[in-house]
Amino acid sequence: MCLQRGCTCTLKYAGGIPLVSPCLKNILFLANFLTWLVGFTMIGIGVYAKVEKQYSHGLSELAVDPATPIIIFGCLVFLVTFFGCVGALRENICMLKFFSFVMVFALVVEVGCAFAAVILSDSYRESLGKLMYKSIEHYRNDADVNDLVDWMQEEFKCCGVIELKDWSYNEYFNCDINNPSLERCGVPYSCCKVDEDANITDVINTLCGIGLQNSEDSNLYIYDQGCLDSFLLWVHDHLFYISFFLVVLGCIPQILGVMISRILIIQINDQYRFIQLGLLVDSGDIEYLGS
């Protein structure tokens, strides 16, 4: 229980008695509680997506399964915000210290990744390319990967990783003459160029990419630029907005969380000292102030 009934957002003492700011407690609790709900929702969505598939993927497919990173990130958010939420509510120093430590560690990792992305840009490009190739390989075998690849190709108007022939890495679109698939040597419909002037009542040719991998005039019907370059170009063009978004919604809330948790730790420690000296009872009420 705090000594002050109002809302004090700074470290303050009243009559020599240290106060635990109810305003800071409520801000930290509410922010962590809302983020905790987000983490819980992410876990639920990820688990639901896993269950809906009704079959388990091999270890090689975990890297391209969108549900996996959603579950992992949701669990991390759920755990960390739980400590921040309960620590602020119960004025628990250990939980607040753990929360602030994780926030500082996350900030260091984020800044490190940002510098690494600049310094090791070629390595990041190579890793991203491998992930895209893995996604092409498992296309048609995973509904989530299907949707993700189709969205990327339609959004960035691209096809394949480097070129459209990358679709030969997929067993259904492979150009091998022994491939029995009806989509042999083709590309998915998401690679096809869309006629902007077409009427919504027109019949859509979803087989427009069949047999076009080795066609000399394929660029008339499908996108000929790879998705790796298209995506990196989009990131380069929108780097300012991406950085602004990450700083405003990522770094600044984390820094504020660290600052508020550290202030609360100081205030709680000061009250503990007064309790040990017999000036306050455990409830936080004044027992003896002296004359």
Rank of each mutant, 00 (worst) to 15 (best):
V118W: 09
R125Q: 14
V118H: 07
C85T: 03
V86I: 14
I71P: 10
S135Q: 14
C94L: 13
E126Q: 14
R140N: 08
G112H: 05
F105K: 02
V77R: 06
V108W: 05
L128C: 07
F83R: 10
I136N: 02
F115P: 03
I93T: 15
A88R: 07
F99T: 11
Y139F: 14
I93R: 14
F99E: 09
A88W: 08
M132C: 02
V86M: 03
L131A: 13
K134Y: 04
C75W: 04
C75D: 06
F78N: 09
L96S: 00
V109R: 06
F105E: 06
R125C: 04
M132Y: 12
M103H: 10
V118I: 12
V104K: 01
V104M: 13
I93D: 02
L131I: 02
F78T: 10
F115I: 15
I72W: 04
F83E: 03
A117L: 12
F99A: 08
L76D: 02
V104D: 00
S100H: 00
C94H: 12
Y139S: 08
K97T: 09
F105M: 12
G112Y: 00
S127I: 07
V118D: 01
Y124I: 13
S123A: 07
A106K: 06
L76H: 02
F115N: 05
T81N: 15
E137L: 09
L96A: 09
L96H: 07
Y133N: 14
V77H: 04
Y133S: 11
F101S: 12
L120F: 15
F105T: 09
V102N: 08
A116R: 03
L107R: 00
V109C: 12
C75E: 05
M95E: 10
I136C: 04
K130H: 13
A116Q: 02
L76G: 10
G129E: 14
I136S: 07
K130M: 11
S135Y: 01
L107H: 03
F98Y: 12
K134W: 05
S135K: 12
A117N: 00
L131G: 15
F73W: 10
F83T: 11
S127D: 13
Y139C: 08
E110P: 09
L120I: 01
M103G: 06
C94V: 10
G74L: 02
E110S: 07
I72K: 07
L76F: 11
G129N: 11
L96P: 08
E91Q: 13
T81F: 04
I93P: 00
I93Q: 11
V111A: 14
M95L: 15
V109H: 07
E126G: 02
L79V: 15
M95A: 12
L128S: 10
M95Y: 07
V102Q: 07
L131Y: 05
G74A: 07
F98N: 05
I72F: 13
C75S: 15
S100I: 08
A114I: 08
A116M: 13
C113V: 15
R90V: 05
C85E: 05
N141D: 15
F73T: 15
A88I: 03
L79M: 13
A88K: 03
V118P: 01
A88S: 13
K134N: 15
F105Y: 01
L76E: 02
G87Q: 09
L128K: 10
K97Q: 14
T81L: 03
